[in-house]
């Protein structure tokens, strides 16, 4: 176990290092400096700016300095907003993104899984068709289309919810629905198919033959086994939900990290792009790691050596 964990952590560091390197050199491959795109700066000012941000140093020195500062959790200053650190931007946007993300996660798990179970138990009935129709819609229609349609119908036409902002609880409804739609459908479909697999198994028949109550059979024998594949995909799902969708934050004008990211792209704010990319990558890896660990705990049959093959 310990060996597996240290192995994983080691791999995570290598991945992170590669990501930092990749983003750093990608950003430096962009033609022109970060200040050249602005309206004609006086050459002295540009030189002063370059000197201030050490852009005149050789690239390898900049790279080493960047590595050093990232290692001390400092993502550097923003190029476009003087005096603002990338760290501050992330700290500023993270709570919003996390709030929306964790609510969406709750929706996905608390609605998606029961929906899938219902569909599996009522296979071939109208409940199944309804869930599957819903799930297909959720997977096929892009989130930005869902978000705009929701916004149009519920905020503009009916006026039930505000069009932007999170000042009241109703402001959360549309972003959460739009963000969780895809993963809700995905999890519902996955639960249905894995539940159907489990319902077919011999141990379910044994449990029935033993005379256990249907409820007990479903929860203890059915669900517990059916949940394993769901937990496996939950890692990426959690990560994707919590890092939020750029689109959802953009459409609903939520001041989360995704919005900072999209803004920094259109502003060509290179340090912010790099910083947020690295932050995202860290966060994702951490989430996947945690879920993988949970997975090992939940299903004692999985041996670490077996997992590697």
């Amino acid at each position: 176990m310990l060996k597996y964990i240290t192995n994983r952590i080691f791999l995570m560091f290598i991945t992170l290092f590669l990501i930092i390197t990749l983003t750093f050199f990608l950003m430096h491959a962009i033609p022109g400096g970060p200040f050249t795109s602005e309206k004609m700066l006086a050459p002295e000012i540009e030189a002063a700016l370059n000197a201030k941000y050490h852009l005149n140093d050789p690239v390898w020195l900049q790279y080493l300095n960047y590595l050093k500062s990232v290692a001390s959790f400092d993502l550097g200053p923003s190029f476009k907003y003087p005096g603002i650190q990338v760290n501050d931007m992330i700290a500023d946007g993270l709570p919003v993104t996390l709030k929306i993300g964790s609510l969406s996660l709750l929706v996905v798990v608390l609605i998606g899984v029961p929906m899938g179970i219902l569909a599996a138990l009522k296979k071939g009935h109208w409940q199944d068709s309804l869930v599957m129709a819903f799930a297909t819609i959720g997977i096929a229609i892009p989130s930005y289309v869902i978000a705009t349609i929701l916004l149009f119908v519920f905020a503009l036409k009916l006026g039930w919810v505000p069009t932007f902002g999170l000042d009241e609880w109703r402001g959360y409804i549309l972003p959460v629905v739009a963000l969780s739609g895809f993963y809700l459908s995905y999890v519902a479909r996955l639960t249905r198919s894995s539940m159907l697999d489990v319902l077919d198994q011999d141990f379910m028949k044994t449990a029935k033959a033993k005379g256990l109550s249907p409820y007990k059979i479903l929860i203890h024998h059915g669900l517990r086994n059916a949940l394993i594949p769901i937990v496996t995909v939950l890692g990426p799902v959690v990560a994707n939900l919590l890092t939020g969708s750029f689109i959802i934050e953009q459409i609903f004008a939520l001041p989360g990290i995704g919005r900072h990211f999209v803004l920094s792209i259109s502003n060509r704010d290179y340090t912010t792009i790099m910083g947020i990319t690295i932050f995202y990558a860290c966060f994702l890896m951490l989430m996947i790691f945690i879920v993988d660990m949970l997975y090992l705990i939940i299903d004692p049959r999985i041996k670490l050596s077996g997992k590697k093959s």
Binding site: L18, T23, T277
Partner: peptide, 22 residues
Amino acid sequence: MRIVEIISTIPLTLYVILIMVV
């Protein structure tokens, strides 16, 4: 497979955005 794992650690959209920025 390690290379694949590293690539799939970052969400695809992030890569695509980075490449599109460059």
